[in-house]
Structures are given as C-alpha cells and as structure tokens.
C-alpha cells in the first residue's frame, strides 16, 4: 500500500486549486485485464447515468413530464438531465490528449473519454476541471469529461442504440501474445456492440503503431457486415484523423521514436432489412 498512498499524498501536496494535474503522480501500469471483475461503478442502464456530474454546463432544468419517461420506471426520476447526449467516445483515452485537442474544435459536441485505469481517469478528470477553470471566459472544455469503465463489458450500460457519432480507438493495448488476442479491444463480436451504440453514418477511428494490430483491426471491422472501410482520400480530408495522428499522447511518442502510424476508419452502415 506504501507506493500508491505516497503517490496520492504527493498529488495532494503538489497541487493547488485550479492547477493542472501532473502526470507523474497519476501513472499506472499500462495493462488491465478486461475479463476480471474490477470494482467498477457503472449505471444499470443508460437512463440511470447521471451525466450532469460530468457536463454541468449542459444541465437543464428538469422537464416535468411523467408521460415520456421511457421506461416508466420511477427509479431514474431524480436524475438531472442534460441538454444533449454524448456523441463522441474515446475508448481507452489514456491521459486524454485527443480529448483535449478535440474539445475546442467541436465545442457544441459532448466528448467522453473512457479509461479502465483509475488513476489515469482521475488525471483526465482533474485536467478537465483545471482547463474549465482556466477557460472560464470562453466556456471551452465544458464539453469534455472522462469516466472509468470497462467498455468491453459495459458499453451498452452507458450509451443507447445509435447514440454515438464517432468512436476513437487510439493506440490500444496490442496484446501481442496469441493467447491474449481475445483481450483486444477489437473483435468481430465486439464490433457488433460498437455498431449498436453508433449512428448509421458514424465513424470508428483506429490508429496504432503496431502493424500486426492494425491488420487485425482492419480485418475484423472489414469482415463485419455493419461496417465499411472509409477510403484513404476521405481520410486525408478528415480533421479528426489529423488530430488523432498528432495530438494523442501515444501519437507523440511514436513521432519521437520515428515509428509508423497506421490509421483505418470504418463507417457504420444502416442495418439490413429483416430477411
């Protein structure tokens, strides 16, 4: 317990209110087992999620209408509503480089990072808080937040069908060993879940410096009937791709290392008619 407690203590000691958190106090080993029952907190369903905690600037006064309570279950009545839904998700956002680069570029869109490591999540949350304070005048960064989640298990607990316009999968854990491949963030069965939470026409962005993983992700999305690959020309015109290449923490590291960055983007297709 000595190590982490000290780290936490240092965090407290070194930080004044409104100041940016320092990464060195929030490091955590890069791998987490997605199959284990971490002590996660997650809503039992999307309606039970209190988004106002994460996007307080978007909170709306509660509309008093008992008729449109979709699940007519009174359990979710006390939850503060927000004016719009999260539309962009960065799955495995790490220290949030991409999130904070995207946020000012699309200030009207809610962007959420999802990260399985507690400390790293806390870092992003603290950073968002600090940036909001620093940009009080412009109101920037109100649209970005981060939650701790195991998306491989609990994606549908957070998002409803067709909710997301963009999903980013940036520099995911490559899980090199063949035995660990099923722990990869992309698989054909998981692609069905990504398709579920995505709006038809929305994009899944993937980037990695590991060629093997790149081929794996491309192959699995390509094989899935709900996705089509976005052409390279279109990729180059997409601002998000540029941001993803240069602004992610890992992206910068790869740059320094002269590594190659492999990018593939897939578009969510409409569901086929019933047979």
């Amino acid at each position: 317990m000595a190590g982490p407690a000290k780290k936490r203590q240092k965090r407290e000691d070194n930080r004044q209110e409104g100041q940016m958190p320092q990464k060195k106090f929030y490091r955590q080993r890069a791998h987490a087992n997605p199959f284990s029952d971490h002590d996660l907190t997650y809503p039992s369903c999307p309606a039970a999620m209190d988004w106002s905690q994460h996007f307080p600037a978007f909170t709306v006064a509660k509309a008093v209408s008992s008729t449109d309570a979709l699940d007519n279950d009174h359990e979710h009545e006390n939850i503060q509503q927000i004016s719009q839904q999260v539309a962009v998700a960065d799955i495995g956002c790490g220290f949030g480089g991409l999130l904070f680069a995207l946020a000012p570029k699309m200030p009207k869109t809610l962007i959420l990072g999802l990260e399985i490591r507690t400390s790293v999540t806390e870092f992003v949350q603290e950073k968002a808080k600090a940036l909001r304070n620093q940009n009080g005048d412009s109101g920037l960064y109100q649209n970005v937040s981060c939650i701790r989640a195991n998306t491989m298990k609990f994606l549908p607990n957070f998002f409803t069908k067709g909710q997301l316009e963009k999903i980013f999968l940036c520099f995911p854990d490559p899980h090199f060993k063949a035995r660990k491949h099923k722990a990869r963030i992309v698989s054909t069965t998981l692609a069905s879940e990504y398709a579920y939470v995505m709006k038809p026409g929305g994009n899944v962005y993937t980037i990695t410096d590991v060629e093997d993983l790149h081929l794996w992700m491309a192959e699995h999305f390509e094989a899935h009937p709900s996705f089509e690959r976005v052409s390279d020309e279109e990729l180059e015109r997409d601002e998000c791709v540029q941001t993803m290449r240069t602004e992610t923490e890992e992206g910068k590291k790869v740059e320094r290392n002269n590594g190659t960055k492999y990018v593939v983007v897939f578009r969510r297709l409409e569901d086929p008619p019933w047979p």
Partner: peptide, 26 residues
C-alpha cells in the same frame, strides 16, 4: 465485491500483479 477500498487507495486496479512494471506509460 468489497475490495473497493483497496482499489480506491491503490493506484492499480485489483488485478493482482499491479505495480510491478509501473514505469510503463509514456
């Protein structure tokens, strides 16, 4: 459940072998 406290205190999730190669990221 119930190892929640250790998960909150410890910087590494409760998956056992945490903290060994901590310097990993960045």
């Amino acid at each position: 459940r119930g190892w929640g406290d250790s998960a909150k205190e410890g910087d590494d999730g409760p998956d056992g072998d945490a903290g060994v190669d901590d310097v990993a990221e960045d």
